[in-house]
Design a protein around this nucleic acid. Structure first.
Length: 402
DNA sequence: TCTGGGGTCCTAGGACCC
DNA sequence: TCTGGGGTCCTAGGACCC
């Protein structure tokens, strides 16, 4: 989907179309303040100058999406808000509305599935589609079907998307970026040398900032540079698995199937504080946040029907270094108190003398609730959970923090 | 006043078991 | 010139993606 989070906001506020708008930042519902102020007007008639500017933004956070007009200023996804404000001070800024984004995400995916059922979810704004066997899918090399999908999505939602058509996921992903926004690009195996090899290595899905740095040091800048290396040389420099994969990727080789069903492995909640906190000095505040995160994970698990048996925490210190600790328990759980207790034990095992920027709670080794093998200990813990939920005796925030 | 939140997968060492 | 060879599970960290 093209500039998905921003495009979703523009559906509500069409008066912002064509303007530099960035979506992101903290939890403050800036737009609700505007809405209250202009509650007598429909959203689409709220004057443009009522919207907050990036230069007035305070707080932490990054840009989730920028409109194409905003990208002209050099701002884009994952950029810190403060840095973005320097580049585009007069861009408008709106917070992320996840409920709204998820609504449109479900909608565009279901439209695609009606046309081509083999769809792999790749997050909120992306999918892979295998339309090998869709009737008419091969007409004009896939262009007819791609157009049909674009048209169906735009008619139903007002949103646009870009589609890459290719013999495999790796090339299709790269092709999808060739004609943004609202574009279609069709690549064949024979196009790899002319269309893919000149691209920088970072364009390969799976080569990130670290691998790029290492490749640059080895004087490899383009995908073609990688392709021209001996496979063995790449294996020697990047390891057996990653080196071989990199060689295949540079040659456009990828045999991964489109995976239509998958089970979650873990669920987590984390939060970056508005200011760095200290485990001792800010104990009460930190404790309340910690408990809240545990409750959120528990409720996510329960709502989606999962239980997990590895419980862990994540800290980010003020220097951005990350520490994680986890502990596997006897039985599976989705109980907030159990999670809170085990996560609390994990917290005792990390350095808490430094200032913290982020705290997270994670539950892994998930199973569908009810289907997991139950141990005696687990049955006992279920009984305890039931007792807890009936008793509800302990008021909020009275649990020990560490 | 740089740098969010929710994920997956991989690696590597150690414990433990047969 | 002591102490094999698998296998699985657990844990911590890190790269990468959307």
């Amino acid at each position: 989907m093209d500039a998905f989070f921003a495009s979703v906001e523009l559906l509500r506020y069409p008066q912002l179309k064509g303007l530099a708008v960035v979506i992101g930042g903290g939890r403050r519902k800036v737009d609700e303040i505007i809405r209250d102020q202009y509650s007598d007007l429909p959203l689409s008639e709220i004057p443009v100058d009522a919207f907050p500017l990036l230069k007035d933004y305070v707080g932490r956070g990054v840009i989730t999406t920028a409109t194409y007009a905003a990208r002209q200023f050099g701002v884009g996804s994952a950029m810190g808000m403060m840095k973005a404000a320097k580049l585009a001070p007069n861009a408008l800024v709106l917070p992320v509305d996840f409920d709204e984004v998820r609504k449109y995400s479900r909608q565009f995916k279901s439209i695609i599935r009606e046309i081509a059922p083999l769809v792999e979810d790749r997050g909120v704004d992306e999918v892979y589609i295998d339309f090998t066997d869709v009737p008419g899918g091969q007409r004009e090399g896939g262009r007819v079907l791609a157009r049909l999908i674009q048209k169906a999505i735009t008619e139903a939602t007002g949103l646009t998307c870009s589609i890459g058509v290719a013999p495999n996921k790796l090339i299709a992903k790269m092709a999808s970026e060739f004609n943004k926004p609202n574009g279609i690009s069709i690549l064949h195996e024979a196009d790899v040398q002319t269309k893919i090899w000149p691209l920088p290595v970072r364009k390969i899905n799976g080569i990130g900032p670290k691998a790029e740095i290492k490749l640059t040091k080895l004087h490899l800048h383009t995908i073609g540079d990688i392709a021209s290396q001996e496979r063995e040389w790449l294996v020697d420099n990047f390891g057996k698995s990653y080196g071989a994969w990199m060689h295949d990727a540079a040659w456009g080789r990828d045999d991964r199937p489109v995976v239509t069903e998958s089970e979650p492995v873990s669920m987590s909640r984390e939060t970056t504080f508005e200011r760095d906190l200290h485990a001792v000095r800010d104990k009460a505040e930190l404790g309340a946040i910690f408990t809240e995160l545990c409750k959120q994970v528990a409720s996510d698990l329960q709502r989606k029907g999962y239980v997990g048996k590895t419980i862990g925490i994540k800290l980010r210190y003020d220097d951005f270094k990350i520490a994680t600790r986890d502990q596997t328990i006897e039985g599976h759980t989705a109980d907030a108190r159990t999670i809170r207790k085990v996560a609390g034990l994990c917290l005792k095992r990390v350095d808490l003398s430094r200032r913290l920027r982020l705290l997270g709670v994670r539950v892994g080794k998930l199973e569908k609730a009810g289907s997991e093998e139950k141990t005696a200990a687990e049955r006992a813990s279920y009984a305890q959970t039931a007792i807890n939920s009936v008793a509800q005796s302990e008021p909020e925030g009275t649990l020990d923090l560490f």
